[in-house]
């Protein structure tokens, strides 16, 4: 698997793309493969300010339900509404069109605690 060096990663198998103080967040390709066919993504925290590690939503595969955790603290600005009607996009393009939320970060120094591509690769191999 080719993990982008431009992204940060978490132990919960999420990826974070940073643009200024805005973080775009999704789950990794490894996560979608482990979960299997994604049938529902529920995110109802848009507008809320959440701490790092708090649950911002839920992802449901045919057999399982998993919580989605904030990799950094901040305000959830936007939810990828395309996932409401096409949750399988997470399976098809986890690192691209399958993104989940955009967050206005309240403390960018938290990014230093996240995994780089090399560390995440080690986690999943």
């Amino acid at each position: 698997m080719n993990l982008s060096a431009d992204l940060k990663y978490t132990n919960d198998h999420e990826w974070i793309k940073v643009d200024g103080d805005v973080a775009t967040i999704g789950v990794t390709d490894f996560a979608q493969r482990e979960l299997g066919d994604i049938v529902y993504v529920e995110i109802e925290t848009v507008g809320e300010t959440l701490d790092k590690e708090e649950v911002f939503g839920t992802i449901e595969a045919v057999k399982t339900v998993s919580d989605l955790f904030m990799p950094v603290s901040g305000e959830v600005m936007e939810f990828n509404e395309a996932l409401e009607s096409n949750p399988e996009t997470v399976n098809d393009d986890a690192f691209g069109a399958g993104w989940m939320i955009k967050v206005k970060m309240s403390d960018t120094s938290e990014l230093d605690e996240l995994l780089n591509a090399e560390a995440y690769e080690a986690l999943i191999s």
């Binding site: 299997g36 066919d37 045919v62 057999k63 399988e88 399976n91």
Partner: peptide, 8 residues
């Protein structure tokens, strides 16, 4: 439990 994907 699964080969190509449960829906398929």
């Amino acid at each position: 439990v699964q080969y190509s994907g449960v829906n398929e």
